[in-house]
Structures are given as C-alpha cells and as structure tokens.
Nucleic acid binder design. Structure first.
Lengths: 229, 229
DNA sequence: CCAACGCCATACAGTGGTGTATTGGAAGAT
DNA sequence: ATCTTCCAATACACCACTGTATGGCGTTGG
C-alpha cells in the first residue's frame, strides 16, 4: 500500500486535491515521518515541523492533542506499511522463485518497503520496552511468513528456519550498514543470492524479466531514491 | 581490547583505584557511552549525566571544554574497540575454521564486540554525513578483513565477497533486529551457520571446545549481558 | 604550614522546546 | 448575507538544557 494513502487513512481523511491552502492532519504526519527518517525521533519537534510547513504551532494543536498523539499516528503508519508488504510478497501466488523475486522487488522499491522508516522506528524503540515489543511482533510475523514460504516448497522445518533467517537477516544487515550501491550492482547480485537462498538456479528468462520490471518501477520512484539516511 | 581500558586511554588517564571520591574524565565518558547505548545520542545530556554521577555540571566543564568534546571522545572509543576486534579475529592464526570460530566468539562476547554500541553509533550518524563516512570506512575495513580471510582459504574473488557479505550482513541483521535468545539456542545454530558459510563440516571436537570456551567466558561477563537495547 | 592545584558548587544569561488560552479570518452552509 | 466551522496567529507561563564566571574547599607538594 502506498504510504501517502496510509498516512491519510490513519489520519481518517479522504484524499483531496493537492495544493491545499490549509494543512491537514496528514500533512503534519507526513512531515513528521520525513523528519523521523532523516533525523530520528528526537528531531520530531513541533516547532521545527511548523517552520518547515510554513505555519505556527497553533495549527498543530488544532490537529493533534499533543506530541504524543502525533507519535502514535506515526507508529500506526509504520505498522501498516512495511510488514504488510513483506508478508504479501512472501505469500504471493506462484512458485518459490516467483515469491523470492517478489521479495527482492520489495527490498528494492521504497514504496513497498522503506528501510529508512524501518530502522528509524527501531532506533526510536531504543530504551522503550513497549515499542520494542511491538517491533518484535512485526519481525515475528515477517519471519513466520518467510519460514512458511520455504516450508511450503519442500524445506524441512529446521532448514526453512535457517534459510528464512539468512534471507531476512542478510537484507536487514545490508540496510543497517546503509550500503550505497547503484541499482546495476544490486541487480548483478540477484542471481547469486537467489541460488544461495534456494539451492536452485535462477531461470535466466525470469532474471531478465525481473531486471526489466525493476527498471520500469524505478522510473516511478525517480532516480535518486537511494537513502542518504 | 577491554572497553574500560580504552575509555581511560582515550581520556589519557592511568587506571586508578576504584572508589574515587572525585570523578575523572573517564567516568564521564563511561556514563556517556552507557547513555548513548541505552537511549541514543540525544539523551546524552550534560545535566542528566551530572545527576546520574551525583555531581553538578561544574564538574563536567572542568573535564571537557563542551559537549562536542565529549562526543568526539565517545567516537574515539568506538573506533578503537569493535572494528579492531573483528579484524583481529578475522586475521587470527590457524585454519579457516579457527578464524570463523574466533569471529563467532566476537559476536558472542560484548567485551570484544558490543553490538549495542555499534548500532547506537550508526543511529547517531543519521543525518550526519561526516559521521556516516567514518562508519562506512570502518565497515569497509571489517569487510576487507573478512574477504581476505575467505580468499586466503581458497575461495575465488567473487565467492569470497559473497561469503563475506553473507557472514557479516547476517550478523548485523541479527543485531539490528535486537533478537533475544538464550546462549544455548545461539550455540545450537553455530554448526549449521558454519556449514552455510564455508561449505565445510564443523569438526565436532572443535565445536565442543568452542562451547566450553564460550561458557567459560560467559562466567566473566556475568549472566545477564543480553542487551535490553 | 601554606600555597597551588584539582575538582566541584553556585549563580546567571541565553536558547529552544512544550502546552494553553484567546483571538482572527477565510470558506462553506443555510 | 450571515453564521458556523475550520484552520492558523499571537501571547503567555513554564521547563530543560547549554555555557560562562566565579567562588569554595580538600589534597598535595615544597
């Protein structure tokens, strides 16, 4: 699901025409998420957001009771975006190859899975046990979907777990290190990773289709969406 | 290298008797690192540290010029602890098996590699390009050591890179997700992971020795060093 | 023994953030 | 055409934190 849609849904507002003269709850929420991603939760200050939005704090306190309400809305957006995308890809119709490639798409398209948001939320949870529990639950849901995917294609329980962990942890590690590689380089690793995870060869035709699909999508998200973090 | 030693070295102070009536630069630094790990860089406030140390801020401004000097000292400690441990393990004498196991020890012993510090520093770098560059350099050094390790034991260039990435990213992903497992569970995965990374069987005797070694070390770091993050 | 140094307390000025109360004004509804 | 409703500006009280200036006091060395 598109993030802006989610933001508006969480804000309980209908999607309206752009170029509004006044702000909506969703506008504040969007800016706050942007701030969270770029500078961490402690940078999400009402004063600062008001400056960026070109209004005073008076506006904020009309849309939200207080800062806490904003934070809760932000968490709602996260909960309903990244995890849902992973699970959807892992349970996609088709062969194991189809599903793995769907997951690779997920890893590559920030509209489906935004690693910056994911890690910003994880950092946010530092020192907050309740939030950590929420995140752990989401991780468990993602892992369960991945384990089920491998298990459904012939891997025994323990093997499915190890493969799911390798698959998921490797990708999270990649994000955690904030690696910055051009898309072409990432694409060149796809076949090798696929074989590592599945012990099968990746069908060359499928790989070609995948490349084309990703490049077509890339047009949509624009050129430089590689996170500066 | 032990972290407290490093802290004192960075503070340019000799190790003294405990139970000092007055504080040293190292005491402030240690508390600040603790705060960074538990609550992030934005929680590293002079006022708060002073409260925790039971003194007023007057003490701080005797030991440090300003907050910035403290932050630089904290970064020095990180630079000289985690990365050094990884490189040392990866270049340890012996077979590939010896080195991999040395790295596993690293992953398990927070005195050698403290993942909480590592990720706290990564989070700190959010929105700070200069700091990101420092971290990227450390990551590169670690990766180079791992690639060289695999290459030195017969893996071709590309294979060595993929294996090093899998090895390192998987572990970083594990830490990033803040997984909390008992030591016994982690130990039970060692052999399987070893085989995944090397395509060799882990010598049962070596595995037994490893278990014993880790458990002996565990006595040293105490029981509950599993990060609450 | 007392003088200098090392470490800390106190007081002050300044900044940036929160939340509340009140007022102002433009768009839609009737 | 006026009357709500929605959104934003302004003003106020309050708190957390930084950094500086200065004074106090115990410890140590000459």
């Amino acid at each position: 699901m598109k993030k802006r849609q989610l933001i508006e849904r969480v804000s309980k507002e209908a999607e309206e025409d752009h170029a509004q003269p006044r702000l909506t709850r969703a506008d504040w929420l969007e800016k706050a998420l942007e701030m969270l991603i770029q500078n961490g939760i402690d940078a999400v200050r009402i004063t600062r957001l008001a400056d960026l939005l070109g209004v005073t704090r008076g506006s904020f306190y009309w849309h939200f009771a207080d800062r806490n309400e904003l934070l809760e809305a932000m968490l709602d957006v996260w909960q309903q975006s990244n995890t849902a995308s992973v699970i959807q890809a892992a349970t996609a119709p088709g062969t194991l190859q189809d599903r793995i490639l769907a997951l690779f798409i997920c890893w590559l398209d920030p509209e489906l899975f935004d690693p910056r948001l994911d890690f910003a939320v994880r950092d946010w949870a530092r020192g907050d046990a309740a939030l950590q529990a929420v995140i752990a639950q989401s991780d468990q849901q993602r892992m369960d979907a991945l384990i089920a995917m491998f298990a459904a294609h012939g891997f025994a329980e323990r093997q499915a777990i190890i493969r799911a962990r390798n698959f998921y942890y490797t990708q999270m590690g990649y994000y955690a290190l904030n690696v910055r590689e051009p898309l072409s380089v990432r694409l060149s690793y796809v076949a090798t990773y696929f074989e590592t995870y599945t012990d099968e060869k990746l069908d060359p035709q499928a790989e070609a289709d995948f490349r084309q699909k990703v490049i077509a999508r890339k047009e949509l998200w624009g050129d430089e969406r590689i996170p500066a973090r």
